[in-house]
Simulated scan of single mutants.
Amino acid sequence: MVEIRIRVNGTTESLDLPPQVSLLDALREHLGLTGTKKGCDRGACGACTVLADGERINSCLALAVQYADREITTIEGIADGEHAHPLQKAFIRNDGFQCGYCTSGQICSAIGMLAEHDAGTPSAVTEHLCATGELSDAEIRERMSGNLCRCGAYNGIVSAIQEVAATETVR
């Protein structure tokens, strides 16, 4: 067993875990944060996406011990108290989910993706960002390609992200 201290959604947690426990299993099974979903358990679907120090990661591929003393944000931690995060509201307005299984990973990934875009990180669609900084459909789809939706709610997801990218400065 390894004792780790990890900060999750603003609260420092101390866990005694076998060293091979994934961050996903630590969140779900040891901390009871079940909003992060286990989809493929191989890093291919994005249902387990969380933010580690603000960057999106697949928590099924990460060992919990690797994230000791780091800040992890799950879907449970993105709202501002009783007020939903702007992306959560936009997903609802734009029908960005159907069954909802992938939604927590989609939203966490979108938060990370928007931060990457704001930082000027290029994607495979554009070598550099245009002067306006606007996100095209193709740009959003490329940047979100690590998150799958079996229900096919991609148009709503893209619309929700475009809405927030156009109106929000707080991520």
Score class of each variant (00 low, 15 high):
residue 1 M to G: 09
residue 1 M to S: 12
residue 1 M to P: 10
residue 2 V to F: 07
residue 4 I to R: 05
residue 6 I to K: 01
residue 6 I to T: 00
residue 8 V to P: 03
residue 9 N to Y: 11
residue 12 T to R: 07
residue 12 T to Q: 15
residue 20 Q to N: 13
residue 25 D to E: 14
residue 29 E to Q: 14
residue 31 L to A: 00
residue 33 L to A: 10
residue 42 R to N: 11
residue 43 G to V: 04
residue 47 A to P: 09
residue 47 A to H: 03
residue 47 A to Y: 11
residue 49 T to W: 09
residue 52 A to M: 11
residue 53 D to T: 10
residue 53 D to I: 07
residue 53 D to M: 09
residue 54 G to H: 09
residue 55 E to S: 12
residue 56 R to H: 14
residue 59 S to W: 04
residue 62 A to M: 13
residue 63 L to E: 01
residue 65 V to A: 10
residue 70 R to K: 15
residue 74 T to Y: 06
residue 80 D to W: 00
residue 84 A to T: 00
residue 84 A to W: 02
residue 91 F to H: 01
residue 93 R to E: 15
residue 96 G to T: 04
residue 100 G to V: 06
residue 100 G to I: 02
residue 100 G to Y: 02
residue 103 T to P: 05
residue 104 S to K: 05
residue 105 G to A: 11
residue 110 A to E: 02
residue 112 G to L: 08
residue 112 G to V: 11
residue 113 M to L: 14
residue 122 P to M: 07
residue 122 P to H: 02
residue 123 S to R: 06
residue 131 A to P: 05
residue 133 G to F: 06
residue 135 L to Q: 11
residue 136 S to T: 15
residue 137 D to I: 11
residue 140 I to R: 11
residue 140 I to Q: 09
residue 142 E to A: 07
residue 144 M to C: 06
residue 145 S to D: 00
residue 145 S to G: 01
residue 156 G to W: 09
residue 158 V to H: 01
residue 163 E to H: 07
residue 164 V to Q: 02
residue 164 V to I: 09
residue 165 A to S: 15
residue 166 A to W: 00
residue 167 T to M: 00
residue 171 R to V: 14
